[in-house]
Structures are given as C-alpha cells and as structure tokens.
Design a protein around this nucleic acid. Structure first.
Lengths: 145, 145
DNA sequence: AATTTATTATTAACATGTGAAATTAATTCG
DNA sequence: CGAATTAATTTCACATGTTAATAATAAATT
C-alpha cells in the first residue's frame, strides 16, 4: 500500500530533511509576514518561555551555533525585539532580554503556527504524531555526541 | 520513565532539527576529510545512483533548491567531480554527469557513512528505526505542499 | 506567425550554517 | 603578583538556504 516515494526515502538524513521542510514551509510563510526569520523566531520563543539568559543557553535552547546566534542577536537588537545587559557576576557573559515588542510579536502569532502543527497532527493521527516525537527524541537522547 | 529532555522536545520542528543534527554531525566529519560538503555529497550520490540527469531532477533527489544547486554544480565542476552537456532535445536543459573521480570519492566513503547509520539503527533497534523512517515518509507524503 | 504563457537555469541580495581562529575576561598556577 | 590556562563570545571565511528577479527556450494560444 506504499505510495511512490523517491528511492532515497530510506535514507535517514534525507527523510529528516524532507519532513522538516514540510513542517517549516508554512510556518516560515507566517513569520515572513511579521518580518522575522525562523531562527529569529526560535530565539524569541526561548526568551519568552524561559526568561532572560546568556547566549550560550539560548544557543542550546534554540538549536543554533554561537556564531549564528551572535548575528541573530545583532539583528534582533536592531529591531528592538531584544535588549542586552552585561552580567554583573561574570564579565565575560551577558544577559539577553526580550522586549515588550518582542513578546507581542510572539504572542500575536503563536496561534497561527500552532495551527500548522495541529493540522499535521490531524492528518497523521494524534497517536502516530506523538510516536514520531518519541522516536525523534529517542534518537536525540541515545546517540552519542 | 522519561529522561530529562529540553521542554521544547514536543516541538516537532525542533525535534526534527535536533535529530538531524545528531545524524549528520559525524557524517559531515567524514566528508570534510574528503574535502566535500554534505550537499555536494548528496548531489554526487544521486548522480551515482540514478545516472546522468538534469538539475531540476537532481534538486528534487538531493532535496536542494535550484539556486543552491547552481552554485554546488559550479563547485563540483571546478573540482572535476561532475561534467555537463547541453540537452540536445531542449535548449533550456543540460545533462549532468558524475566523473570517474566523483564516482571514486563516493564509493571510497560509502562504507564509513553507512556505518554511522547502522550505529544509530543498532542503538534504536532495527524495528523502531524503520518505524521512524515510515513516520517521516508519511509526514512527507501526506502533507500538502 | 506573433503573442502570450510556462519552464529551466541562473543571478542577486540577504540571512544562516559551519568550523577555525581571534578576542576578551576569569581562573589557576607558579 | 604575573604568566599560563580556561571559558565565553565574537569575528572570519566559506558554503548553503531562501525569495525575487532575470534570461533563454519551449509550449500554448490566438
């Protein structure tokens, strides 16, 4: 009963790539209307959910490398969606905050992006959707760095 | 019995991102020794498996956008890992070939990259590994463009 | 046949991914 | 205290992702 998939469909890297593309394409369209990129959105979400924090922790939470994050924070600061302060306890660190503007952008568009995920969940079935998340997390957790 | 995962672990885009990172990091290390990137490797693999074809089909098979592929083909041509001919039947198209050098690079390193996937399969168990691939392909197939 | 429309490949412009090197500040050691 | 080491962040260089615009050819329409 299998449909016609490319013969690379059993390649794990490519299958992950394709699935991710399907999920993110509609979300990116939503974000483009707001004027922010997918990565900028991830950073704002982490700050909005977990509060002020240093770049290293943001990079971990948003799944970004630090050199990328540095540039993204510069852009977000220009747009006045975040602000930064030096860490009083450690002169090497800084503390990044989300601004009121940033918070508003996230909250105003949370529903639209959630709807995309719920649409996928509806097509796959909630059970298989959760199973997919379990397997992805298992792969992430059990694989050595 | 769940382990300590980030609270973004139930976010499908981030879970896909993290899993993909885990899979590709060791593969990228292998390819870096050969002097080619992950995307260049995907292009060569498609050509080696499916034979000479036009850029549009390569882009589909290697999961790349055409503007990216254009640059990648230029690099691969400089490295003499591919060659190109105009399509005699359609002046807009061209036909891309993998060279003997390109074929050799792929075949010499196929085993090392396969070993990475087999390592993941061993840790997850073959059954759950296949299930993950099924679910990823289901997501890809059933989701509207 | 001339005009329009669609397809293919490229280029442009901006943002990010990635690994290595450089920078700055904190900590440790002699 | 001063040099070496470690840690956090940034910069650098190159490659790719992404959308829009362009050029060339093919196909369709009138």
């Amino acid at each position: 009963m299998s449909s016609d998939l490319p013969n690379t469909s059993r390649s794990l890297p490519i299958a992950l790539l394709r699935a991710r593309e399907r999920v993110m394409r509609p979300v990116r369209a939503i974000l483009m209307d707001v004027g922010i990129t997918e990565q900028q959105w991830r950073v704002l979400r982490v700050l909005e959910e977990e509060g002020p924090q240093d770049p290293t922790r943001i990079a971990d939470g948003a799944c970004l490398l630090l050199p990328s994050l540095t540039r993204i924070l510069q852009k977000l600061e220009e747009k006045q969606l975040i602000s930064r302060q030096p860490d009083p306890d450690d002169g090497r660190k800084q503390i990044v905050n989300i601004t009121a503007n940033g918070t508003r952008i996230i909250r105003d568009n949370l529903g639209a992006s959630q709807a995309v995920f719920e649409g996928i969940q509806a097509k796959m079935g909630a059970e298989r959707y959760e199973l997919l998340l379990d397997l992805l997390n298992e792969l992430y957790r059990d694989t050595s760095n």
